[in-house]
Nucleic acid binder design. Structure first.
Length: 254
DNA sequence: ATGGCTTCATAGTGAAGA
């Protein structure tokens, strides 16, 4: 079973890239973030024409998440009972027996912004939800744009990023608290190239210089993580014309 | 370089992203 995540930075702008990618890799699940479209303008016909189901939770201009799946998703939720958030950042469903939690974690903006405590609180609530609910599912995957680089090795230039949002100690602790419930970062279960990133700034030729961050993650609960065969970042779509600033990440499970 | 692109929005003195 192939499970992938991709922050597409506008699904309507990136539709051709996404459809081409689905056709190339045929993932069982693609979790999408930053669809940036209301549900009434979601490009459902084009996704279905590519052979996929779609469930989505969008809003005007910002945020928005979706699950594109080969098999019909079941028990879909777009809000956690302990997290009432008008921003559309969460979608959870069961696909082929795997509980999938798709997250678009708040960016946080800067350490002195109001958006920073919102991010930390949001992550704490996700952790509490998982603590209460993860035992209900034998196979559990949390994936998406976490907007946190877990360690310095996930940062192109840790010195330059010091004191910045995405790498701060409280954010990393919030992610670690989720992992400590019993989730594994699939990418780090395998030997990987050094300087492996999933996001590169549009400016400064950042992609060409590989000045990026690894902030798009696939976590699996421990027993299911043992079934993980591979986890890769696909840099190819980042080379296309008008790319998303994020690359897709995909894990394969048996 | 004190945000240098890109998106969606509106027609701003943008706002937000990461």
């Amino acid at each position: 079973m192939k499970i992938a995540t991709w922050n597409v930075n506008s699904l309507r702008v990136r539709l051709e890239h996404v459809v081409d990618w689905l056709k190339k890799y045929q993932p069982d699940v693609l979790a999408v973030q930053e669809t940036k479209t209301e549900d009434k303008t979601f490009p459902l016909d084009e996704i279905e024409a590519a052979g996929y189901n779609a469930v989505f939770s969008g809003q005007k201009s910002y945020n928005g998440v979706a699950l594109l799946t080969r098999k019909e998703p079941q028990d879909v939720i777009t809000d956690l009972p302990n997290l009432q958030d008008p921003q559309r950042r969460i979608m959870e469903a069961t696909v082929d027996g795997v509980r999938i939690l798709n997250l678009y974690v708040p960016n946080g903006s800067s350490l002195d912004s109001d958006k920073y405590p919102y991010k930390l609180d949001w992550l704490a609530r996700v952790k509490d939800y998982l603590n209460d609910n993860m035992a209900k599912h034998e196979r559990y995957v949390i994936l998406g744009d976490f907007n946190i680089a877990p360690e310095d090795r996930d940062v192109c230039d840790p010195k330059a990023w010091e004191g910045n949002v995405l790498v701060s100690a409280p954010e990393r602790a919030a992610l670690a608290a989720i992992e400590e419930l019993g989730f594994v970062d699939c990418f780090r279960s395998f030997e990987q190239d050094e300087k492996a990133y999933s996001w590169w700034n549009y400016r400064q030729l950042a992609f060409r210089r590989n000045r990026g961050l690894r902030i798009d993650l696939i976590l699996a609960n421990k027993s299911f993580a043992a079934n993980c065969q591979s986890c890769i970042i696909d840099r190819e779509p980042r080379k296309l014309e008008r790319p998303s600033d994020h690359a897709p990440v995909m894990a394969e499970f048996n």
